[in-house]
Design a protein around this nucleic acid. Sequence first.
DNA 1: TAGATTGTTAATCGATTAACAATC
DNA 2: TAGATTGTTAATCGATTAACAATC
Lengths: 212, 212
Amino acid sequence: MYSSQNGKVPVPTLERLATYLRYLIDLEQSQIETISSAEVERQTGINAAQFRKDLSYFGEFGKPGVGYNVVDLQNRIARILKVDREQKVILVGAGNLGSALVGYPGLKEHRFNLVAVFDNNVSKIGRPVWDLEIQDITTLAEVNTTLQARMAILAVPANAAQKVADMLVEAGITTILNFAPIILRVPRSIYVRNVSFLQELAVLSYHLSTKP
Amino acid sequence: MYSSQNGKVPVPTLERLATYLRYLIDLEQSQIETISSAEVERQTGINAAQFRKDLSYFGEFGKPGVGYNVVDLQNRIARILKVDREQKVILVGAGNLGSALVGYPGLKEHRFNLVAVFDNNVSKIGRPVWDLEIQDITTLAEVNTTLQARMAILAVPANAAQKVADMLVEAGITTILNFAPIILRVPRSIYVRNVSFLQELAVLSYHLSTKP
DNA sequence: TAGATTGTTAATCGATTAACAATC
DNA sequence: TAGATTGTTAATCGATTAACAATC
């Protein structure tokens, strides 16, 4: 019902859905009940036709002549993105970046539940990170037999990332957010998204004007 | 010489250039002198024609029948992305994420020089973050008169982000890497890239199979 | 020279946007 | 009803990939 007919939803559409969701939460808090696609364009900069097209992959959401009910649309987008229910997430790599991510304020509000943190550094194992205790990476598969998490955040150095990715797949993880600057080799059934801080900075750097 | 004729380089091309650069650095360390586009495809998964097309925006880089010289290509891509020279970067927001970014290991190797950290929290001002001291955000414009940084990383909460963005523009910053989950309103001449951890997780979450 | 591989053109694919009939 | 705005089709735009002449 909430999934597209043919399964071919463009990734940019999914990214924008997350943006709409955040925006709708703001609107709800502002006590606004209804919005039009034109208003969305005005406030987010995303083309109104784009907005309507994005939603059309998943059904009908608005009333012609009226617009969209804020709360209803919010709930339905949350359902599409599966953020209407708790999702268990595990983190591998308790370095600076990993530790910062555990404490990311929006996580809980978006129903992402960080249930375990792993590292291979013996001196770190057993130490606390926020409300969790760092566990030995070698126990990953075993621990996840109980936890049954499907999402993982990979925040280890590049030279360890592939090995850890293999372990994640072995442990039943099906989606990976990869912060290591390498291209992971995983089975086709595993969904990976890459986040590269340095790549972002490089694109930024390119856009610096050469003339001082 | 190293810029494209018409200035219309696709952003995906720039992102891939950063990937090629990283890969070339690895190749150099492996003492490999020459590569072909076919080999790039085999190792990175990026289509060989794509690789050649990406480079074609900036000139000719290879020898037909031979391939590309690893060190030469590396140097030229670095020049294109302007990561062949030191780039000063300032950070606003010394929270968990911001502090983690300051310590990001690849920064220095990629010639990104973090020269100042700002925050508005009085209890944080004056405290050290790695080798820097957190400065008062209200002194941003003044401090940057001397520093002359053009790149900024914005890692403050959503509700403060727009105000800080205005201050960054005022202080002469021209490119911004925005970690706050809002769409910044800035003059057209300012280049902004958004990184959204929660958006990434939401796209991941969508791809979880519904069937258990 | 023969084989390999580039740079580039043309074909394909996919995403964005404009336009408008349907409808609240 | 008249005005507003949706959902969707068709047009446009842009990026990816295949094909191949040029050339080392």
